[in-house]
């Protein structure tokens, strides 16, 4: 229990809250749109902070429990701000603005100096914990958002290239998960039908790890492509990758495999009875 903060809660709640919200509206929200419900969220956080200050002892080892009311409100607010693409310093800054106002109100209470020191220390500790928590939560959320965004970018970057008449090239780059594999397959099947492809080169140079799950996805893609009448030439499996696939017991049935894209292209052209030759060698054709 802290009687000083109990007094603040009882006698000065409304004025501190209003002052804080007005400050945020002027200093923070100017830069970004003010989403509906933000004030209500801030008010919930404000009350949770005051309640914690008033009800908890001055705990030297205070740790913010993420599942407590305070933890949940703070998390919600931080999530909101991270989604608004605010900077973490804004989030922490709005907490510090509240701390400043509480400290000022405390000093105006006319308490004994012991009580002031005690209360200020507790205020300090609590806001240290809040700031750290907010900062960490903010970074976590942003990281997640960024990953989601880059994953969906990856999904978009699956070009199927027409290399030659009836020859397609599908360069796979990055992590192949279920969703991505499905998109790749769809795109490839469309292209095969559109170009009446007889050969498709599947280049795996950009696939970081060929494990059984990736292999299974590839097998499904290959099977579907083959049903449309195209031959598959696989390229870009490193010697180490090939060795690993063998150890895993994986074989791509009926697939021509070439170490390099260049060898794969030569193979593909052979299948459509073409070849790349020097300009002066027409006689030999």
């Amino acid at each position: 229990m802290n009687t000083a903060f109990q007094r603040l809660q009882r006698e000065h709640r409304a004025e501190i809250l209003t002052d804080w919200l007005q400050h945020l509206a002027a200093a923070v929200d100017r830069h970004s749109p003010h989403p509906p419900g933000l004030d209500a969220q801030r008010e919930s956080l404000f009350d949770a902070v005051l309640t914690t200050l008033a009800e908890r002892p001055n705990a030297h080892d205070f740790m913010l429990d993420p599942d407590s009311e305070l933890g949940r409100y703070l998390n919600r607010l931080v999530t909101e701000q991270a989604r608004q693409l605010a900077s973490p310093s804004e989030t922490v800054g709005s907490l510090l603005a509240l701390k400043q106002r509480l400290a000022r109100a405390l000093l105006a209470l006319d308490l004994s100096s012991d009580a002031v020191v005690e209360s200020l220390l507790w205020l300090d500790r609590l806001f240290d914990a809040l700031s750290l928590f907010a900062f960490k939560a903010f970074v976590d959320i942003r990281e997640r958002l960024i990953t989601e965004q880059s994953l969906s970018l990856l999904e978009l970057s699956t070009p199927v290239l027409k290399l030659w008449h009836q020859v397609l090239l599908l360069p796979l780059v990055g992590v192949i998960d279920t969703l991505r594999a499905r998109q790749v397959t769809e795109r490839l099947l469309e292209a095969i039908a559109e170009h009446e492809a007889r050969v498709t080169i599947l280049d795996l140079t950009g696939v970081p790890v060929l494990d059984t799950s990736v292999a299974q996805h590839l097998m499904k893609t290959i099977d579907a492509a083959r049903l449309l009448g195209t031959r598959i030439v696989m390229t870009g499996i490193s010697p180490e990758g090939a060795q690993t696939l063998t150890k895993l017991g994986i074989r791509f049935a009926d697939v021509v495999s070439r170490a390099t894209l260049r060898a794969g292209i030569a193979e593909a052209l052979l299948i459509v009875e073409r070849r790349i030759a020097p300009l002066n060698s027409e006689r030999q054709l």
């Binding site: 059984t212 799950s213 299974q216 895993l248 017991g249 994986i250």
Partner: peptide, 11 residues
């Protein structure tokens, strides 16, 4: 799945 994950990893 392919059922090759555990036995393959062992190898």
């Amino acid at each position: 799945g392919l059922g090759a994950g555990l036995p393959g990893t062992r190898r």
